[in-house]
């Protein structure tokens, strides 16, 4: 098995190539405005460093967000067209699940909060509970202003860029866990594949397109 994992739902353009028993090869660049340009070269680089060719890929795992739409779509469309071209299956993992599992190593707490940049002065967020080595979602992913989260949620140890952006609302940042680590994405993908967990490849937008229908305009 050789998993190509990629995620573009945070500020990182994140790629990992993971083989069964070898440490994954990771290629990451942090640039929230360069997903379109940089993702394919990073995939090529990661495959090269892993001594693999595209034809060796057996599964594609992609972060399905939530995340800023244009960046998120670059990863999603790259994953599904790669899967089509190579004739291999594509699997989706919620990006917040990945960040939550990254956060487990940085705290002893039993619960944590993931809060990422949703632009427009809002965060994408979800609450997680420790479950052995994994993080189990306690709430569905949601979007809203950081200050509107319940007090006890805001006080949880928090991963993602939320605390950097809204330090007054999110006061318990976990150091160093800001963006997606593709090695963790690949690990979650492999684990869920082995367990037969369904992994739908549906983008998590959580917001409607920002436009009024002509009928809605007439009502204003």
């Amino acid at each position: 098995m050789l998993i190509l994992a990629l995620d573009t739902a945070t500020s990182a353009i994140a790629v990992a190539v993971a083989r069964d028993d070898v440490a994954p090869v990771v290629a990451v660049e942090v640039d929230p405005r360069a997903h379109t340009e940089r993702l394919a070269p990073l995939v090529a680089r990661a495959l090269g460093e892993a001594g693999a060719t595209p034809a060796d890929v057996t599964d594609v795992v992609v972060g399905t967000g939530p995340g800023p739409f244009t960046g998120l779509r670059v990863g999603m469309v790259t994953a599904v067209t790669t899967g089509l071209a190579l004739g291999v299956p594509v699997h989706g993992v919620c990006t917040l699940d990945v960040l939550a599992e990254q956060g487990l190593g940085a705290t002893d707490a039993d619960e944590l909060l993931v809060a990422t940049d949703a632009r427009r002065r809002e965060v994408y967020w979800a609450r997680y509970a420790r479950d052995g080595d994994t993080a189990r979602p306690v709430t569905e992913p949601a979007v809203g202003p950081a200050g509107d989260l319940p007090d006890e949620v805001r006080a949880l140890p928090t991963v993602g860029r939320g605390p950097l952006l809204y330090p007054d609302a999110l006061t318990a940042p976990l150091d160093g866990v800001l963006d997606t680590d593709p090695a963790v994405l690949a690990r979650i993908g492999a684990r869920r594949l082995a367990a037969g967990t369904p992994m739908p490849v549906e983008p998590l937008y959580l917001r409607r397109p920002d436009a009024l229908t002509t009928a809605e305009r007439d009502l204003r």
Binding site: H35, T36, L39, A40, V43, A44, T53, P54, F69, T70, R73, V74, V77, T78, A79, T81, T82, A85, L86
Partner: peptide, 20 residues
């Protein structure tokens, strides 16, 4: 449209890279 173009460009890159 910038966001629309990005979907096509990313897809085309993935195809070119995967197909060599």
């Amino acid at each position: 449209l910038a966001g629309a173009l990005m979907v096509g460009v990313a897809a085309a890159k993935a195809l070119a890279l995967s197909l060599g």
